[in-house]
Protein backbone atom coordinates (compact mmCIF):
# COMPACT_ATOMS: atom_id res chain seq x y z
CA UNK A 1 0.00 0.00 0.00
CA UNK A 2 2.76 2.38 0.97
CA UNK A 3 4.60 1.85 -2.30
CA UNK A 4 1.53 2.61 -4.32
CA UNK A 5 1.05 5.84 -2.44
CA UNK A 6 4.65 6.75 -3.24
CA UNK A 7 4.08 6.16 -6.91
CA UNK A 8 1.02 8.37 -6.88
CA UNK A 9 3.00 11.04 -5.10
CA UNK A 10 5.74 10.84 -7.70
CA UNK A 11 3.20 10.97 -10.45
CA UNK A 12 1.57 14.07 -9.04
CA UNK A 13 4.90 15.82 -8.50
CA UNK A 14 6.19 15.10 -12.00
CA UNK A 15 2.88 15.06 -13.86
CA UNK A 16 3.66 17.97 -16.17
CA UNK A 17 7.25 16.89 -16.84
CA UNK A 18 6.14 13.37 -17.66
CA UNK A 19 3.64 14.82 -20.09
CA UNK A 20 6.45 16.78 -21.75
CA UNK A 21 8.97 13.94 -21.85
CA UNK A 22 6.77 11.01 -22.79
CA UNK A 23 6.12 11.70 -26.51
CA UNK A 24 9.83 12.04 -27.24
CA UNK A 25 10.84 9.05 -25.10
CA UNK A 26 8.10 6.84 -26.54
CA UNK A 27 9.02 7.75 -30.13
CA UNK A 28 12.70 7.04 -29.50
CA UNK A 29 12.08 3.79 -27.64
CA UNK A 30 9.48 2.38 -30.03
CA UNK A 31 11.08 3.43 -33.32
CA UNK A 32 14.77 3.40 -32.43
CA UNK A 33 15.78 1.46 -29.32
CA UNK A 34 13.36 -1.43 -29.73
CA UNK A 35 14.14 -2.08 -33.42
CA UNK A 36 17.89 -2.07 -32.72
CA UNK A 37 17.46 -4.65 -29.95
CA UNK A 38 14.89 -6.64 -31.94
CA UNK A 39 17.17 -7.10 -34.94
CA UNK A 40 19.47 -9.26 -32.79
CA UNK A 41 16.55 -11.54 -31.89
CA UNK A 42 15.28 -11.69 -35.46
CA UNK A 43 18.75 -12.77 -36.58
CA UNK A 44 18.33 -16.03 -34.61
CA UNK A 45 15.12 -16.96 -36.44
CA UNK A 46 13.87 -18.09 -39.79
CA UNK A 47 11.22 -15.51 -40.67
CA UNK A 48 9.69 -15.63 -44.15
CA UNK A 49 7.54 -12.45 -43.64
CA UNK A 50 4.27 -14.39 -43.99
CA UNK A 51 3.99 -16.89 -41.18
CA UNK A 52 5.50 -17.20 -37.74
CA UNK A 53 9.21 -16.87 -36.97
CA UNK A 54 11.05 -20.05 -36.05
CA UNK A 55 14.01 -20.06 -33.65
CA UNK A 56 17.02 -21.60 -35.38
CA UNK A 57 19.86 -20.39 -33.18
CA UNK A 58 23.10 -19.52 -34.93
CA UNK A 59 22.18 -21.17 -38.22
CA UNK A 60 21.84 -17.86 -40.09
CA UNK A 61 25.34 -16.89 -39.08
CA UNK A 62 26.69 -20.29 -40.13
CA UNK A 63 25.07 -19.82 -43.55
CA UNK A 64 26.55 -16.33 -43.84
CA UNK A 65 30.03 -17.78 -43.35
CA UNK A 66 29.73 -19.76 -46.56
CA UNK A 67 27.74 -17.18 -48.54
CA UNK A 68 29.91 -15.95 -51.39
CA UNK A 69 27.69 -13.03 -52.37
CA UNK A 70 27.62 -11.87 -48.77
CA UNK A 71 31.43 -11.80 -48.67
CA UNK A 72 31.54 -10.12 -52.05
CA UNK A 73 29.26 -7.34 -50.83
CA UNK A 74 31.20 -7.09 -47.58
CA UNK A 75 34.46 -6.66 -49.49
CA UNK A 76 32.81 -4.14 -51.81
CA UNK A 77 31.62 -2.13 -48.80
CA UNK A 78 35.13 -2.11 -47.32
CA UNK A 79 36.47 -1.08 -50.74
CA UNK A 80 34.02 1.84 -50.84
CA UNK A 81 35.05 2.87 -47.32
CA UNK A 82 38.76 2.56 -48.09
CA UNK A 83 38.35 4.89 -51.05
CA UNK A 84 35.79 7.32 -49.64
CA UNK A 85 36.91 7.87 -46.05
CA UNK A 86 40.50 9.05 -46.65
CA UNK A 87 39.45 11.12 -49.68
CA UNK A 88 36.70 12.88 -47.77
CA UNK A 89 38.83 13.43 -44.69
CA UNK A 90 41.62 15.03 -46.74
CA UNK A 91 39.77 16.85 -49.52
CA UNK A 92 37.20 18.43 -47.22
CA UNK A 93 40.09 19.67 -45.08
CA UNK A 94 41.61 21.32 -48.16
CA UNK A 95 38.26 22.77 -49.14
CA UNK A 96 37.90 24.18 -45.62
CA UNK A 97 41.34 25.81 -45.92
CA UNK A 98 40.13 27.45 -49.12
CA UNK A 99 36.90 28.60 -47.48
CA UNK A 100 38.95 30.03 -44.62
CA UNK A 101 41.09 32.00 -47.05
CA UNK A 102 38.03 33.47 -48.74
CA UNK A 103 37.18 36.79 -47.19
CA UNK A 104 34.60 38.18 -49.57
CA UNK A 105 31.57 35.95 -50.18
CA UNK A 106 32.51 33.16 -47.78
CA UNK A 107 28.88 32.53 -46.79
CA UNK A 108 27.94 32.26 -50.46
CA UNK A 109 30.63 29.67 -51.18
CA UNK A 110 29.75 27.74 -48.02
CA UNK A 111 26.18 27.42 -49.27
CA UNK A 112 27.38 26.42 -52.75
CA UNK A 113 29.70 23.71 -51.46
CA UNK A 114 27.03 22.20 -49.22
CA UNK A 115 24.44 22.31 -52.01
CA UNK A 116 24.89 18.73 -53.38
CA UNK A 117 24.09 17.37 -49.92
CA UNK A 118 20.68 19.05 -50.01
CA UNK A 119 19.60 17.45 -53.27
CA UNK A 120 18.07 14.05 -52.70
CA UNK A 121 20.58 11.31 -53.46
CA UNK A 122 18.10 9.61 -55.78
CA UNK A 123 18.15 12.64 -58.11
CA UNK A 124 21.91 13.02 -57.87
CA UNK A 125 22.45 9.34 -58.65
CA UNK A 126 20.09 9.47 -61.63
CA UNK A 127 21.81 12.54 -63.05
CA UNK A 128 25.29 11.05 -62.60
CA UNK A 129 24.14 7.87 -64.25
CA UNK A 130 23.38 10.02 -67.27
CA UNK A 131 26.72 11.80 -67.06
CA UNK A 132 28.48 8.42 -66.92
CA UNK A 133 26.75 7.01 -70.03
CA UNK A 134 29.18 5.38 -72.49
CA UNK A 135 28.44 8.19 -74.96
CA UNK A 136 27.57 10.71 -72.27
CA UNK A 137 29.01 14.16 -71.62
CA UNK A 138 32.03 13.11 -69.54
CA UNK A 139 33.27 10.76 -72.21
CA UNK A 140 32.61 13.49 -74.77
CA UNK A 141 34.90 15.79 -72.80
CA UNK A 142 37.54 13.06 -72.54
CA UNK A 143 37.35 12.49 -76.27
CA UNK A 144 37.60 16.21 -76.92
CA UNK A 145 40.79 16.31 -74.84
CA UNK A 146 42.19 13.40 -76.81
CA UNK A 147 41.98 11.01 -73.86
CA UNK A 148 40.67 7.43 -73.99
CA UNK A 149 36.99 7.05 -73.04
CA UNK A 150 36.01 5.07 -69.95
CA UNK A 151 33.16 2.62 -69.30
CA UNK A 152 32.36 4.17 -65.94
CA UNK A 153 29.74 1.66 -64.84
CA UNK A 154 31.51 -1.48 -66.04
CA UNK A 155 32.51 -4.15 -63.51
CA UNK A 156 36.05 -2.81 -63.58
CA UNK A 157 35.31 0.84 -62.79
CA UNK A 158 31.88 0.92 -61.20
CA UNK A 159 33.04 1.06 -57.56
CA UNK A 160 35.43 3.93 -58.27
CA UNK A 161 32.76 5.84 -60.19
CA UNK A 162 30.16 5.46 -57.43
CA UNK A 163 32.73 6.43 -54.78
CA UNK A 164 33.52 9.51 -56.80
CA UNK A 165 29.86 10.56 -56.76
CA UNK A 166 29.68 10.21 -53.00
CA UNK A 167 32.95 12.14 -52.50
CA UNK A 168 31.76 14.89 -54.87
CA UNK A 169 28.55 15.12 -52.88
CA UNK A 170 29.87 15.08 -49.30
CA UNK A 171 33.16 16.97 -49.55
CA UNK A 172 31.57 20.41 -49.11
CA UNK A 173 29.37 19.19 -46.30
CA UNK A 174 32.33 17.99 -44.23
CA UNK A 175 34.38 21.09 -45.03
CA UNK A 176 31.84 23.04 -42.94
CA UNK A 177 32.72 20.84 -39.94
CA UNK A 178 36.39 21.69 -40.36
CA UNK A 179 35.61 25.35 -40.86
CA UNK A 180 33.69 25.34 -37.58
CA UNK A 181 36.82 23.88 -35.99
CA UNK A 182 39.08 26.54 -37.52
CA UNK A 183 36.84 29.24 -36.12
CA UNK A 184 37.41 27.85 -32.63
CA UNK A 185 41.17 28.34 -32.88
CA UNK A 186 41.88 31.76 -31.37
CA UNK A 187 43.59 33.97 -33.96
CA UNK A 188 45.81 35.38 -31.19
CA UNK A 189 47.67 32.08 -30.92
CA UNK A 190 48.39 31.99 -34.64
CA UNK A 191 49.39 35.65 -34.68
CA UNK A 192 51.69 35.09 -31.71
CA UNK A 193 53.32 32.15 -33.48
CA UNK A 194 53.81 34.32 -36.56
CA UNK A 195 55.49 36.99 -34.45
CA UNK A 196 57.74 34.32 -32.95
CA UNK A 197 58.79 33.37 -36.47
CA UNK A 198 56.93 30.08 -36.99
CA UNK A 199 56.51 29.31 -40.68
CA UNK A 200 53.29 28.03 -42.23
CA UNK A 201 54.27 24.36 -41.84
CA UNK A 202 55.21 24.80 -38.19
CA UNK A 203 51.99 26.67 -37.48
CA UNK A 204 50.10 23.81 -39.06
CA UNK A 205 51.85 20.94 -37.25
CA UNK A 206 52.06 22.56 -33.81
CA UNK A 207 48.86 24.59 -33.60
CA UNK A 208 46.25 23.82 -36.22
CA UNK A 209 46.60 20.02 -36.42
CA UNK A 210 46.46 19.29 -32.65
CA UNK A 211 43.43 21.54 -32.26
CA UNK A 212 41.73 20.04 -35.28
CA UNK A 213 42.25 16.42 -34.35
CA UNK A 214 38.85 15.90 -32.68
CA UNK A 215 37.18 17.13 -35.87
CA UNK A 216 39.32 14.86 -38.03
CA UNK A 217 38.04 11.98 -35.88
CA UNK A 218 34.46 13.17 -36.26
CA UNK A 219 34.74 13.55 -40.03
CA UNK A 220 36.41 10.17 -40.49
CA UNK A 221 33.76 8.46 -38.35
CA UNK A 222 30.84 10.21 -40.06
CA UNK A 223 32.26 9.51 -43.51
CA UNK A 224 32.74 5.85 -42.59
CA UNK A 225 29.09 5.68 -41.59
CA UNK A 226 28.26 7.53 -44.82
CA UNK A 227 30.26 5.15 -46.99
CA UNK A 228 28.53 2.18 -45.36
CA UNK A 229 25.22 3.79 -46.38
CA UNK A 230 26.04 3.92 -50.08
CA UNK A 231 22.85 1.88 -50.57
CA UNK A 232 20.76 4.52 -52.38
CA UNK A 233 23.47 5.33 -54.89
CA UNK A 234 23.99 1.66 -55.78
CA UNK A 235 20.28 0.94 -55.86
CA UNK A 236 19.50 3.75 -58.30
CA UNK A 237 22.48 3.44 -60.64
CA UNK A 238 23.27 -0.27 -60.93
CA UNK A 239 21.18 -2.29 -58.44
CA UNK A 240 24.45 -3.95 -57.46
CA UNK A 241 25.46 -4.98 -60.95
CA UNK A 242 27.16 -5.87 -63.18
CA UNK A 243 27.39 -9.32 -61.57
CA UNK A 244 27.40 -8.02 -57.97
CA UNK A 245 30.51 -5.94 -58.66
CA UNK A 246 28.99 -2.85 -57.02
CA UNK A 247 26.72 -4.58 -54.49
CA UNK A 248 27.15 -3.04 -51.02
CA UNK A 249 26.27 -4.81 -47.77
CA UNK A 250 23.09 -2.81 -47.29
CA UNK A 251 21.98 -3.67 -50.83
CA UNK A 252 22.56 -7.33 -50.11
CA UNK A 253 20.51 -7.04 -46.89
CA UNK A 254 17.71 -5.40 -48.89
CA UNK A 255 17.83 -8.09 -51.59
CA UNK A 256 17.74 -10.93 -49.08
CA UNK A 257 14.99 -9.33 -47.00
CA UNK A 258 12.69 -7.87 -49.60
CA UNK A 259 13.40 -9.87 -52.76
CA UNK A 260 13.86 -13.32 -51.21
CA UNK A 261 11.75 -12.61 -48.10
CA UNK A 262 14.28 -14.10 -45.68
CA UNK A 263 14.03 -11.59 -42.84
CA UNK A 264 15.97 -13.66 -40.30
CA UNK A 265 18.90 -14.07 -42.65
CA UNK A 266 18.82 -10.37 -43.56
CA UNK A 267 18.82 -9.52 -39.85
CA UNK A 268 21.93 -11.65 -39.31
CA UNK A 269 23.68 -9.79 -42.13
CA UNK A 270 22.54 -6.49 -40.58
CA UNK A 271 24.02 -7.49 -37.23
CA UNK A 272 27.36 -8.24 -38.93
CA UNK A 273 27.12 -4.88 -40.72
CA UNK A 274 26.53 -3.13 -37.41
CA UNK A 275 29.34 -4.92 -35.60
CA UNK A 276 31.87 -4.19 -38.36
CA UNK A 277 30.90 -0.52 -38.46
CA UNK A 278 31.10 -0.33 -34.68
CA UNK A 279 34.57 -1.92 -34.64
CA UNK A 280 35.80 0.42 -37.39
CA UNK A 281 34.54 3.49 -35.54
CA UNK A 282 36.11 2.36 -32.26
CA UNK A 283 39.37 1.76 -34.08
CA UNK A 284 39.25 5.27 -35.58
CA UNK A 285 38.70 6.80 -32.16
CA UNK A 286 41.59 4.80 -30.74
CA UNK A 287 44.06 5.67 -33.48
CA UNK A 288 43.39 9.40 -33.45
CA UNK A 289 43.03 9.91 -29.71
CA UNK A 290 46.44 8.37 -28.95
CA UNK A 291 49.58 10.43 -28.24
Amino acid sequence: MKRRKNLMWYFRKYKFDLFLALPGILLLVIFYVAPVIAVFFVSFTRWPIIGAPKWIGLKNYQMLMSDRIFFKSLLNTLYYAALIVPSLTIFSFILALILRAITKGREFFKAVFVFPMVVTLVSTATIWKGLFLPFGPINAVLEFLGLPTVQFLSAEHVKNSLSFILIWRDVGYFSIFYLAGFEQIPTEIIDAAKVDGANALQRFTYIIWPMMRPIVVLVSILSTIGSFMIFTLVYVTTRGGPAYSSEALLNYIYDVGWKEFRMGYAAAAAVVYFVILFLLNSFQRLVFSRE
Binding site: Y32, V36, I225, F231, F274
Partner: peptide, 17 residues
Protein backbone atom coordinates in the same frame (compact mmCIF):
# COMPACT_ATOMS: atom_id res chain seq x y z
CA UNK B 1 24.36 6.54 -27.86
CA UNK B 2 21.50 6.46 -30.39
CA UNK B 3 23.16 9.22 -32.42
CA UNK B 4 26.03 6.80 -33.10
CA UNK B 5 23.79 3.95 -34.28
CA UNK B 6 23.25 3.81 -38.05
CA UNK B 7 19.47 3.81 -38.34
CA UNK B 8 19.54 1.46 -41.37
CA UNK B 9 19.90 -1.55 -39.11
CA UNK B 10 16.49 -0.74 -37.61
CA UNK B 11 14.82 -1.18 -41.00
CA UNK B 12 14.25 -4.94 -40.71
CA UNK B 13 12.58 -4.92 -37.30
CA UNK B 14 10.72 -1.69 -38.12
CA UNK B 15 9.31 -3.33 -41.21
CA UNK B 16 8.30 -6.50 -39.34
CA UNK B 17 6.75 -4.50 -36.51
Amino acid sequence: ALMMVPYQITIISLYLG
